[in-house]
Design a binder for these strands. Sequence first.
DNA 1: GCCGTTTTCGGCCCGACTGTTTTCAGTCG
Length: 604
Amino acid sequence: MMTIGMTNLAIAGMLRNMAAAYEILGENRFRTIAYERAADSIEHLTSEVKDLWEDDKLSVIPGVGPAIRSHLDELFRTGHVRHIEATLKRVPEAVFPLLLVPGLGPKKAYKLVKALDMRTEKRAVSDLETAAKAHAIAPLEGFGEKSEQDILSAIAIYRKGQIKENRMGLPQADAIARDIIAFLQKGAPVREITVLGSLRRQVATIGDIDIAVATGRPADVISRFLSYPHQKMIEKGPTGASLLLHNGRQADLRVQDPRAYGAMLQYFTGSKNHNIALRTWALGKGLSLSEYGIKQVKTGKTTAYATEEAFYRALGLPWIPPELREDRGELEAAIRQAQGKPDGLPDLVGLSDIKGDLHIHSDYDLEPSHDLGRDSLAVLLDRAVEQGYRYIGLSDHNPSVTNHTPEDITAIMKRRKAFYEKAHAAWQRKHTKAVGIFILCEVDILTDGTLALPESAFTYVDGVIASIHSSFTQPEGAMTKRVVRGLTAHPKVRIFGHPTGRLLPDREGIALDWKEMFRVCKARGIALEINAHPARLDLPDTIVFDARRQGLKFIIDSDAHEATAMDVMRYGVSVARRGWAGTHDVLNSMEYNDLAAWLTPSRI
DNA sequence: GCCGTTTTCGGCCCGACTGTTTTCAGTCG
């Protein structure tokens, strides 16, 4: 038996294959759709399915019910799912790789495999290519000259690895979207233009770039879009077009009359699961929703809405912020709010609520084991003024423990404190705007759970961010003990830095017992960091969501190693919002004095 | 197979585009 991978992508692929097999086998259509929905959800999850399974929370995944839950349970316990493996065996194995070729779905793939007598999974794509080149496809029923050519170019795209699986980070997606928007605004009659899809929802990783345009002259906008530099035109029509760009990314454009732009925004922002939930709910009220507006099912009359607010209002709902649109309970909360009941939509934290950044590395050389920052305190303070901050925290890595004795380290930390205080005073004398500093330190939690800062050195810091920077693969039990030991080693440990240690897109997070982590952090008043670095976005939004419900507090930090990197704060704010966090949940929305009071533990 | 403000049974979002068809099936988002 083959072993199925345990990553979200592998699991989604398994469920998608299952859906394809059911479709080929003529199974109930809705059962097929159910597997597809579950695959979609899992592919777009921002936390690992395996972590959810460990916490017995698979049911929070939209579209995962008792049957798929038990399949996943079997997968994680044994490495196999007997029912799924048996079902997949009933379909020729060559079908499955063909599904990854754009434009081929279960029906076509199966037809080709049968007609061309393709035997092996391994050679399926190259067999198909050979057949297409030999003009063996065009004569087949349901195919033709054009589809033969399309298959060849789709295989070329497939070969370049330019299919869905590699999602990009937010900054790259932002940059591509900005470029396309500027291009369209320059040469087309654009009334309004908006980035939609997962980028508008600020998901940690982005698949396609989705852009909507309000215009009275759709044809002109579409033709301008089609002249944007691209590798391949995927499709075009009167309402939009899709391009494969040279960087391998797909960009989708939709155009709409300004009078119906609100419905378009709503539709194209997604998520798919949010839209399905909303449409299903609306249907119960006799309303059918589409990108054109809201249709009374009885009369067949469609009403257009110019804004998204008006669209939601027409449904009797408050506007739902895009970051919440993941079918994670936001519709139910909106309904409760509309009925005047408690537990409505959260009042989300915004970038302008952030009063400071507590995780910044300066260029002060304290001989650390990890990297120094590149900019001086003065440069960082200047930047803080530009960001509108009231304070920053200097959180350099602790001095290397292998190269220094505890006495050395204490001496270094003492010198550092004196240096910062003096440099800060000098900077402040020259500036009217007051920006306070906190002298912190990012301290390693070593493999055995001890902190890489000797007791005597704590005198010279206002507080500590404790983080994991080594031995990421310890099993959950050992890792949990290690972190708990580190966090509770000294009362000045106030923040748990980038708690999962994940790096997007490759490094999975460490294995932790989150229930225990939440309990310990809450008991000691330790804040969880939301590290805003785009490759981290750590905590993941799903854990923010859970932690907030347990009453935990967060601090959003840039982890900047240079002044310009401080502006990634907005990505961290997005994570907080996606986790339903409000201003009261985020401690660096407090003013300097309040934060200073929080930082100072009463029990020293 | 999933799911719950007309339901724990009986429904299941909505529309666009493409190619191969004479009215539609397959794929996609």
